[in-house]
Amino acid sequence: MATEKLDLLILKTLALDPLHGYGISRRIEQVSRGVFRVTLGALYPALQRLERAGAIKATWSRSENNRRARYYTLTRAGRQRLTAEQQAWDRVAEAMTRVLQADAE
């Protein structure tokens, strides 16, 4: 999966509430009805990247099975980025759809 698409998915997922890594991958998988499966090798480098860019923030706290887990929260910068990237994506998707449908006629 292209990195920007994965970044957008992660940002969107975290917009609702803070999650740990596993939670993020489960949420993406569920909401996409199993279309997107995020591997460890894609997810964690992406989280590291987003954290470095200041779009998300990581904090340690207790998870549901009472283990120490790292929870990721969207920062204000991350929220702005989400809005911008979502708009850009909407435009691309809309354009794609239009072109593809025009082709079909």
Partner: peptide
């Protein structure tokens, strides 16, 4: 965070192992 990455490499590495193992644990569970 740059300095932290530079000087607490071992700790950060342990943390990411911790996090990854936790991820697998949850999936297995």
């Amino acid at each position: 965070s740059y300095c932290r990455e530079l000087f607490q490499r071992r700790r950060l590495d342990r943390e990411s192992v911790d996090e990854l193992e936790h991820h697998v644990e949850l999936a297995v569970a």
